[in-house]
């Protein structure tokens, strides 16, 4: 169970990737993409960057299974909160308004 020492060059490679992704996300944001692709691309890049940081800078790739479960659980609970709340917001107003049949 002795700890894993990540070689320095891995850190530099991850740093390079993070910088490149930052440049890409700024670059892509200039274009007016169709539908909601702007936010999709921006979030995809952000998630990729975050994943790189978690896996390498925070050593999760080399950590115990327990640590990995903890990380996944944290993200899972955030998703629960976002998705179940969204289940209310995206379906609001879908029901046709009830026509009043009270006495004229």
């Amino acid at each position: 169970m002795s700890e894993h020492i990540v070689p320095k060059k891995t850190y530099y490679a991850v740093f390079g990737a993070l910088m490149a992704l930052t440049a890409i996300t700024v670059f892509v944001a200039r274009f007016d993409l169709p539908w909601i692709l702007n936010i999709v691309v921006a979030l995809t890049i952000a998630v990729t960057k975050a994943t790189l940081v978690v896996l390498y800078f925070m050593h999760v790739r080399y950590s115990s299974r327990l640590t990995q479960v903890v990380v996944v659980a944290g993200i899972f609970w955030l998703v629960i909160m976002l998705v179940l709340t969204a289940s209310d917001y995206v379906t609001r107003g879908l029901l046709a308004p009830v026509v009043s049949i009270s006495a004229q």
Binding site: W77, I80, L84, S87, D88, T91, R92, G93, L94, L95
Partner: peptide, 22 residues
Amino acid sequence: GFLVWGHHLFTSSQSVYAGMLF
């Protein structure tokens, strides 16, 4: 227990569909 909180919002103008889910 984390998936059920919407049952406190049945009469709070929460969407009916979300209400059914919760």
